[in-house]
Nucleic acid binder design. Sequence first.
DNA 1: AAACCAACCAACCGCGTTCTC
DNA 2: TGAGAACGCGGTTGGTTGGTT
Length: 293
Amino acid sequence: MGRKPCCPKEGLNRGAWTSMEDGILVSYIQKHGEGKWGSLPRRAGLKRCGKSCRLRWLNYLRPGIKRGNISDDEEELIIRLHRLLGNRWSLIAGRLPGRTDNEIKNYWNTTLGKKVLKNSSISKEESEAAGASSKRRPFSQPTRTVRDAAPKAHAHGRPPEASPVRSKALRCTSTTMLHAVQPAAHARHGCALEAAAGDDHVNAAEQQTVVVVKAPTVEVRQDHLPEDDLSIDIDLDLDFDMGELGFLSPWRGVVADSIELGGQFGGDELDDDLEALLLGPGGDDDIHEFAWF
DNA sequence: AAACCAACCAACCGCGTTCTC
DNA sequence: TGAGAACGCGGTTGGTTGGTT
């Protein structure tokens, strides 16, 4: 028994979207909003699968989508984020306004992956193995390493040792949550703290939550979070090693000296890579966000 | 000019997670 | 609380385009 298909294949258009279909989808969503993808095609009068509509909207038709011309800064950020997050394209895309996960994934598989491979100190055998496998071999990491390594069962404890990152914020030492501007895309996969603080109460596009590590105290629980105050200090219990501290992105436009770095992670204890991440390409003018996986 | 090949990218697919009843 | 539906993610596919021979 196979998996039930998301929608019947018969009678549906497949392949490239026509401009007429695009127009129908855009005008429908402008009128009724996103969501309910399963029934959207029928309601909008499109002969398309709901998933196809969703993908078309998110990757192509949605307002604010930037296309092509990935800048050097964006490229550098993608490389850094990929080093930290692996193939978590939606998370990476969440740090690049106007970019979609699909675009970044494609860009990585076709362009950046090669660059990185070229510049990296990958062993000769690894290079040969990669080259021999397929002429169109993507440059992705092995599939699902992150998700597999951080299953639901570990949601409130330490992940398996092999896990490079956790998929969600679990426990933190002490944090200071500063005021915030948070892209909507961040709410789902970013730190749960941020999602809880940012969701619903404020315009997501104009908000940002910065979480700064200080010193250990209490376990993180969502009910510690304020309902309506985004400018808060809370103490939270951190249970991670230096290597588990994930860096998500440099944020611009917020005063950098709002960030405190203290406790075990401050000053000289930062290794070069992390320090570089903290400072970012814009030096002190960047604001940074941390998350725990 | 034609054939071939590689690169690119939009779209599809299957699976895991979250939501709803 | 469990089942099914809906959603979202990441890997893969296949059509198109541009360069080379």
